[in-house]
């Protein structure tokens, strides 16, 4: 399961952005997730080869961060914040509603849809809040949570975009979002053009370090 030439070019470009190639491990792990849908052992071995460390060292890093998923998540990952502010505003009920509707207990996936609880996602002013493939919904209610699940299941959207989600299922926000944008996520990893993980990856790679 080796990487496409395009991905390898991207890897090289990412590595060149840092003074030390080991620093590229985190971005490369996202790249690996995009390649295989989740972080496979092969992916970690790849990253190890590209950054000149052992697979065990890469695994040590990967397992430290909760966003590197080492089990298949499916197409959509719903992360419901259950930290203090969201908790105070009824996050547990939202999580439960979503688990019920999806028929997937937190921390698991049915191959299409994964549900998890998340620690504070920086949306406390719009609590309760959740992420779909890391695209944010603020002020969501249990009912909207149920609708969200149905929308994902029936609509099978190719791209998840936070502004669309917010209009469909959101409520009060932490602050005035004001400006819409149309880029979004294509899998259970953050949509960020330099990583090639977004729907529109734009020019992204350039410019880089003037090394």
């Amino acid at each position: 399961m080796s990487w496409s030439a395009e991905t390898l070019d991207r890897a090289t470009a990412l590595i060149s952005k840092y003074p030390d190639k080991r620093s590229a491990i985190m971005p490369l792990l996202y790249l690996a997730m995009k390649e295989d849908g989740y972080l496979t052992d092969e992916g970690m071995v790849r990253v190890a080869e590209l950054t000149g460390v052992t697979p065990a060292q890469v695994q040590a890093v990967a397992t430290f961060y909760v966003m590197y998923k080492r089990e298949p998540q499916g197409r959509y990952l719903i992360s419901v914040c259950t930290s203090i502010s969201c908790f105070l505003m009824g996050a547990d009920e939202v999580l439960e509603a979503i688990e019920q509707a999806a028929g997937v207990p937190a921390g698991e996936s049915d191959g299409e849809l994964a549900v998890e609880h998340a620690e504070c996602i920086g949306a406390c002013g719009g609590a309760p809040a959740c992420l779909v493939n890391y695209e944010l919904i603020e002020g969501i209610t249990p009912e909207q949570g149920v609708e969200l699940v149905a929308w994902l299941r029936n609509g099978n959207p190719d791209m998840i975009n936070t502004d669309e989600l917010q209009t469909l299922f959101g409520g009060r926000t932490s602050f005035d979002w004001a400006i819409r944008e149309d880029n979004g996520a294509i899998g259970p990893y953050p949509a960020f053009p330099p990583l090639g993980t977004a729907a529109d990856n734009g020019s992204a790679l350039e410019p880089g370090r003037a090394s």
Binding site: D41, A56, Q59, T63
Partner: peptide, 18 residues
């Protein structure tokens, strides 16, 4: 030869090989 490393974090931290 760093073949054993800490894995996971916090209370789940453990020493392991790849």
């Amino acid at each position: 030869d760093p073949l054993i490393e800490f894995q996971e974090r916090g209370n789940n931290t453990q020493v392991l090989t790849f």
